[in-house]
């Protein structure tokens, strides 16, 4: 009510919902996610929900079920009816969780019908301006003085953390990994000089880099990233074959009938084509990436094997 009041308040362009009467969906749908209200996941979910509801002709509500790195939500969704009314906004952490948790209340791959990825994004390796000339210099310094150069990351078991650990494994460097609560806190620590390096997303790093506070040393994707073609990759500088790209995507409980999954997929793709969603995803430093269910499944299977290896090699405590 308040929402409607406010949108129409100064005679904003009213959004006419297409009154398409179809068999599916005949009631509200929901997008569940496993993070607190207000995080990037929540924001993405809401924007996508807003767009999808136009195409589906039914409201799409966003439900936040935070807990245990998103696994509470995954467990919840995977046990819901595969009737097409429950979707989940998933993030890269879904693949990490498969390796990080001793036991999960769901099957990471078989428990879901994967619909499509929404966006893919690399991480950026950054240091305070003028500290390190290049990625090579950073790794050389970290190899020369093991355990002294500090990487601040956004929490134990986050993709950011594991990317740092992977850097340890693939190069001669030996970093000291310092956990913070979220990328923003890690970034503040970098600004204040408490840590030397931060690996995080473009949203966290870019504004500081543009202001000249940080130097961007490298990007973690296997190939150079279209938005930042001048930034060298980790792969081409210090660790050949290094390729870390995280993602967000939409999944549903396993066993959703094909025609419903296809319908949702086409709506997700339509939402991705809408400027609001596209802008949102790009401004988060991600590349909109509509995909097929098979592509998303393959991506997740691949990442599960990579992260499970990293977690074991780096000796990260399982939960």
């Amino acid at each position: 009510m308040f929402k409607k009041l406010l949108t129409t308040l100064p005679l904003m362009a009213a959004l006419a919902l297409p009154a398409a009467a179809q068999e599916f969906p005949d009631r509200a749908l929901r997008i569940v996610h496993g993070f607190g209200p207000g995080g990037n996941a929540d924001t993405v979910a809401r924007i996508v929900a807003e767009e999808m509801s136009k195409g589906l002709g039914q409201p799409v509500v966003v439900e936040s079920r935070p807990g245990a790195g998103g696994t509470v939500a995954s467990g919840y969704v995977s046990n819901e009816d595969p009737d097409g009314y429950t979707m989940q906004l998933m993030v890269g952490g879904h693949a990490v969780a498969a390796g990080l948790y001793e036991s999960l209340p769901y099957e990471s791959v078989d428990g879901f019908t994967f619909i499509s990825t929404l966006g893919q994004f690399p991480f950026i390796v950054a240091a305070r301006s003028g500290e390190y000339e290049s990625m090579e210099a950073l790794i050389a310094a970290a190899a020369a003085a093991p355990g002294t150069i500090k990487i601040g990351h956004s929490g134990v078991g986050s993709t950011q953390h594991l990317t740092g650990e992977l850097l340890d494994l693939r190069t001669d460097a030996d970093f000291l990994h310092i956990p913070y609560k979220g990328g923003a806190a890690a970034s503040t620590a970098l600004m204040g000089g408490e840590v030397d390096v931060v690996i995080d997303t473009g949203t966290v790093i870019r504004p500081q880099a543009e202001a000249g506070v940080y130097d961007i040393l490298a990007i973690t994707s296997g190939e150079r990233w279209p938005d930042a073609p001048d930034v060298p990759t980790v792969s081409e500088t210090v660790a050949e074959g290094f390729d870390v790209v995280s993602w967000t995507g939409i999944g549903m409980p396993a066993g959703v009938p094909d025609e419903i999954a296809d319908r949702i997929r086409s709506e997700v793709h339509a939402a991705l084509a809408a400027t609001s969603v596209n802008d949102m995803i790009s401004s988060l430093g991600a590349q909109p990436s509509p995909s097929t269910g098979e592509e998303m499944t393959a991506l997740i299977e691949d990442q599960i094997s990579v992260w499970t290896d990293v977690i074991e090699s780096a000796g990260i405590e399982k939960r």
Partner: peptide, 13 residues
């Protein structure tokens, strides 16, 4: 439900 639009169903499904 009307005012705050909390995502809780009024009557389940």
């Amino acid at each position: 439900l009307v005012g705050l639009e909390l995502p809780i169903p009024a009557f389940w499904r």
